[in-house]
Amino acid sequence: MSMPTGKQPEAGPFARAVSAEFRAVMAHKQVSGPQLAKASKISQSYLSRRLRNEVAFTANDIEAICKALKVSLFGVLQAAVKSMASNQMRRPEQ
């Protein structure tokens, strides 16, 4: 799988919610970063930077990770959106 190169923007709120959902699934299924990297055919360093929210996942990354974790892409995205909505409701108006 081809990986983007060059300067990547920091992960935004949705990207952070997606990575949080992936971390939760990984913990639940007891899948390590190296195991997920191998199963998804994504380099370990590339994956870990995204799981740490340094850089956002691409749509291709999300598909590959969902397939490797054997989880629904729709379910992951839905959980991420729900998490974002919940976080926004807890924040005071600015």
Rank of each mutant, 00 (worst) to 15 (best):
S45G: 04
V81R: 15
K41A: 11
T58V: 00
I62Y: 08
S45N: 11
S45H: 00
L73V: 03
A56W: 12
S48P: 07
E54A: 08
A68Q: 04
S45I: 08
S40T: 13
V71T: 09
L51G: 03
L51T: 01
L69W: 01
R49M: 09
L36Y: 04
A37E: 01
D61R: 09
A64R: 15
S32L: 01
E63V: 01
L51Q: 00
L47S: 07
V81K: 13
Y46S: 06
E54G: 08
N60Q: 14
E63Y: 03
L47K: 06
I42S: 13
S48C: 09
K38S: 00
N53Y: 04
V71H: 03
V31T: 05
I65Q: 00
D61V: 11
I62K: 10
V81N: 09
S40D: 11
Q78I: 09
V76H: 03
L36S: 05
L51D: 00
G33V: 14
Q35S: 08
L77R: 08
R49N: 14
K41L: 02
A59Y: 13
A37R: 09
T58K: 00
A64M: 02
A37N: 05
A56L: 03
I65A: 04
S48E: 13
A59K: 13
R50V: 02
A64G: 05
L73N: 05
F74L: 09
C66T: 02
V76P: 03
D61N: 03
S32H: 04
Q35T: 14
Q78W: 10
V81W: 15
A80Y: 04
V81T: 15
